[in-house]
């Protein structure tokens, strides 16, 4: 039991980061691709801009997640970015 807890302690933050990178990163990219609709552009151009930029944002999020010092900080960063994006996305939906 103790050994299990120890293992979890050791790998937990890493798993947390992997989840943050795969799903958190995608979520931020997806949110930003919707948030673009708030920009003063025609709808088709805004939609395409959002799609085009999303992969750069996704990649940037993944780099962020593994570059910072702790898993907690990784999540915090994603959330800080996600909040305004969500507001912008919510305003256009």
């Amino acid at each position: 039991m103790n050994a299990l807890i120890h293992r979890l302690r050791a790998t937990g933050p890493l798993i947390s980061r992997i989840v943050a990178a795969l799903f958190g990163g995608y979520a931020v990219a997806a949110l930003s691709s919707v948030a673009v609709l708030a920009l003063p552009m025609t709808k088709p151009q805004a939609v395409l801009t959002g799609m085009l930029a999303s992969f750069a944002i996704y990649a940037g999020a993944v780099i962020w997640v593994f570059a910072v010092r702790s898993a907690l900080k990784a999540w915090a960063g994603l959330i800080v970015v996600a909040v305004p994006l969500s507001l912008a996305a919510w305003s256009v939906s």
Binding site: A29, V34, V36, V47, G50, M51, S54, V92
Partner: peptide, 10 residues
């Protein structure tokens, strides 16, 4: 891969 903007917009 990123259909969300399209889904919301149209």
């Amino acid at each position: 891969y990123m259909p969300w903007g399209e889904r919301v917009a149209f």
